Simulated scan of single mutants.
Amino acid sequence: MKLFDVYPLNNITPVKAKDCILWDENGTEYLDFYGGHAVISIGHSHPHYVKAIQEQIQKIGFYSNSVQNPIQEQLAENLTRISGYNDYKLFLCNSGAEANENALKLASFHTGKDHIIAFKGAFHGRTSGAVALTDNPKIVAPFNAKHSVSFVEYDLEEIQKIIHEKEVAAVIYEPIQGVGGIILPTDEFVQKLREICTANNVVLIADEVQSGYGRTGKFFAHQHSNIQADIITIAKGMGNGLPIGGILISPEFQASHGLLGTTFGGNHLACAAANAVLEVIEQENLIQKADEMGYYISRALNRYQRIKEIRGRGLMIGIEFEFPVDELRKNLLHKHRIFVGNAKSNIIRLLPPLTMNKAFADKFLQALEEEIVSHS
C-alpha cells in the first residue's frame, strides 16, 4: 500500500532534532524556521518536555476521557494562570480542525442559529461539522445544508448587513491569518467587531490554533486588541508536536452531558505534554522572548531590498516579496539548510520555535540576504 499523495514532500528525512536544529539520516544539519506550521513551540526534544512524556507513558499513557483525569484539571489551571481567562472552561480535543468544529457547534447550540461569518483568506481546519471552513473553492463543500457560511472582507458594514439578514450564530476570525499570508485586521476593527457581536447575540470565536501560545508576544494574539472572545480555539503549539487541541469557553455557555464529545481528546499523555509546554513557556519567559526576537528579525528585514511588506507579530512573520518565492524557498532549504514556509506565491512565512535566539536569526537573515542579492 502507498501513501495517499495530497501533500508535496521535501526529499529530506529528519532522524534527530534538538531546539531549532534538525539532522537528516546523513548527518546534515538544518535550521528549523517553520516548526511544522507553528507546532514546535518550545523547541525540538526539550528535556523537560521529553521527561514529562516518558514519565507519563510509563504510568498510564493514552487513557482518555471516560474517567477522572487530574492532569486535565492541572492543564486547565495552568491555562487559566497564563492566559488570563480566569472564569472560562476548557474542553479538550485532538486538533485545530476539531477545536473549530466544536466551537461552531457550541455557538449554534447556544444561539439557536445556524449561519457563520468567516473572513476571506481564512483557514479554520478542513471541516467544521457543517462546512469546510476555508474560502478555497477546491475545498469548500457543505456537509449539512442547514448550515451556511459567508466569507467577507474586513468590512464592518457588510458584517452588520449579513447579521441583519441571516440567523448568524458566530463570527470566527484569525487574529493573524496564517495560510492567508500573515494578514492582520486592525485592533480598531477587532474592537468594533466585538461590539457588533455583543449587541446582536453573535458568538465571537478567536481561532488561535496557529497564533496562540505566546507566539505573538502575548499568550493569545487577540489580546493585542484588548478584547475577550467568547470562544478561543487552540491546538498547534499546545503539545509541541504531540496532537492535542481545545477550546476555552465563556461562562455564558452552559455545559450538559452529551453536548460535546471526543474519543482521544484530553488523554493523559497529551495533557502531560501540554502541561510541560506551559511550564517551559513560563520558566524560560518564552512569550517575552518571542516578542523580542520577532522585533529583532523584523527590524533587520527592513533594510533588505525587494521586500514589499513585513507583517505579523512576535515570531509569526510574513515577508511579502516583489517576486514569486518558490525558487527562493528551495534555495534556503537546499543551499542554506533552512526550513521556512510560504503563503500564496510571493510570501515567506516564519513560524520558528519560541526558543529562537539571535545566532539562529542571524544565520537565517544572512542566507536570505544572499538569496535576495543573487535574485536581483
Rank of each mutant, 00 (worst) to 15 (best):
I82P: 08
I82C: 12
I82G: 13
I82E: 14
I82N: 12
S83W: 07
S83H: 07
S83N: 08
S83T: 13
S83M: 07
S83K: 04
S83A: 11
G84K: 01
G84W: 05
G84H: 01
G84Q: 03
Y85L: 15
Y85I: 07
Y85N: 04
Y85T: 06
Y85A: 05
Y85M: 10
N86R: 06
N86P: 00
N86W: 02
N86M: 02
D87S: 15
D87Y: 11
D87G: 06
D87Q: 14
Y88V: 08
Y88R: 03
Y88M: 08
K89L: 11
K89H: 14
K89C: 10
L90G: 04
L90Y: 05
L90W: 05
L90Q: 02
L90K: 02
F91V: 01
L92E: 04
L92D: 09
L92T: 03
L92W: 02
L92R: 03
N94E: 15
N94H: 10
N94C: 15
N94S: 15
N94K: 10
S95Q: 02
S95N: 04
G96E: 11
G96Q: 13
G96N: 11
A97R: 07
A97K: 07
E98L: 12
E98T: 10
E98H: 09
E98F: 10
E98K: 09
E98C: 06
A99Q: 06
A99D: 03
N100L: 11
N100Y: 14
N100T: 10
N100C: 14
N100D: 13
E101S: 14
E101I: 03
E101H: 14
E101G: 12
E101K: 14
E101Y: 10
E101V: 04
N102Y: 13
N102F: 12
N102Q: 15
A103R: 02
A103C: 07
A103Y: 06
A103N: 06
K105Y: 04
K105W: 01
K105D: 04
K105M: 03
L106T: 12
L106E: 08
L106P: 06
L106R: 06
L106C: 13
L106D: 06
A107W: 00
A107C: 01
A107K: 00
A107Y: 01
S108T: 10
H110A: 08
H110P: 01
H110V: 04
H110K: 05
G112M: 09
G112H: 05
